[in-house]
Amino acid sequence: MIPVAITVNGKVRTAHVEPRTLLVHFLREHLNLTGTHVGCDTSQCGACTVIVDGRSAKSCTIFAVQADGSTVTTIEGLAADGKLHPVQEGFWEEHGLQCGYCTPGMIMSAVNLLQDNPSPDEKQIREGIAGNFCRCTGYQHIVNAIQHAAKHGGGKAAR
């Protein structure tokens, strides 16, 4: 067991973990932050996407021990003071989700995208979420959702 201290959604969380504990399991099982999902085991679907040290990352492909000392934002940490993040608002406004399973990861990728590029065109949006699979929506409403978020300050919003 190895001690780790990871700042998650603004709070330092300490634990002793097996080296093989995946960050996603640390978040879900140790911290009960179950909004981050697991949709595959080959690092492709993006359901587990969180922000690590300011960049979107697949938390199923990082060991918790690697994230020791890092700052992590999960979907639960996105809304500030009970107010939805513009990307979350966009997904609600534009029906950017159906079953909701890919949604947290998709939103975190969109946050990363808008942070890099606050007014992306449609092609850039589609490329920006290429690491996130959605089986329900056919992506069109997700694209609309991100466009909506971009129009409403999604790129500038605090994380």
Partner: peptide
């Protein structure tokens, strides 16, 4: 390479 998250790590 890969996708945005993969490129970030």
């Amino acid at each position: 390479i890969g996708d945005p998250q993969v490129r970030n790590r």
